[in-house]
Amino acid sequence: MIVRYVRLLWIFLRTEMQYELEYRTNLALDIVQSLVIMGTSVGAVLVLFSYTTVLNGWDLGAMLVLLGCFYLVQGFSEFVLAPSFEKFMEHVRMGTLDFALLKPASPQFLVTLRQFRVTELTQFVLGAVIVVVALSRMSGVGVYQGVGFAVALLCGFTLVYALLLALSTFAFWFVRVDNLMAIYWSFLDAGRFPVDIYPGWLRLTLSTAVPIGIAVTVPAQAISGRLDPFGLGLLVIGTVAAFVVASWFWRLGLRSYTGASA
């Protein structure tokens, strides 16, 4: 069962890759753009750290790890989630969701992990590079921290997935929900700094309703050894809950879907 889904995923990804490689100049330009965006973001952090060595308990190394995590999460959501959910909303609008529903696989899988924007992989890869480079400046990163990081990052991805799934489900009732998605995109920028520097109302928003703060900050905490097993456990439970609720909400919405002119 899982093997079948992984194979499907691979097929989707491969066709998308072939398509994208037809536009090579575009691809090269996108890579250059990502490099510029990363470079300037690192530059902004360096400007802040030219005035201090510690920012709310985060030193430069930890801060760069966090920035890397920010681009891992953002890269992931722009690589697969954003294109898939945009397509999903278009399907609802055009009444073409039927085609996905009739196929012999989980509709949620077929709809939410179907489209890929291969060029966004550069963001993801560069985010990983920043994490690795920053880690080389830090000491005391062991297996335990590594595992914690991997688990926390996976939770981060899932939290963002659940949020976007829940937001886009509203399309079943309201059809045009690009605006709701803009909530996610406007708050996303806040992920570039640790969530603990923000004032109460913003921290709360970034930890619950729009959990980008959690998705980025907790993996960075995990790898710099500042996350206890209790915090990690809490994150896993919260993530599973978010995923289950969002999926339930999606199925609820799906029930009120009617094809075009039905």
């Binding site: 902004a44 005035y51 201090t52 920012l55 709310n56 806040a190 570039r192 700094f193 520097i197 923000y198």
Partner: peptide, 13 residues
């Protein structure tokens, strides 16, 4: 707001 929060943290440090 994001960079405000960051600079406030720097200033406090």
């Amino acid at each position: 707001v994001i960079f405000l929060a960051a600079w406030v943290a720097v200033a406090n440090a």
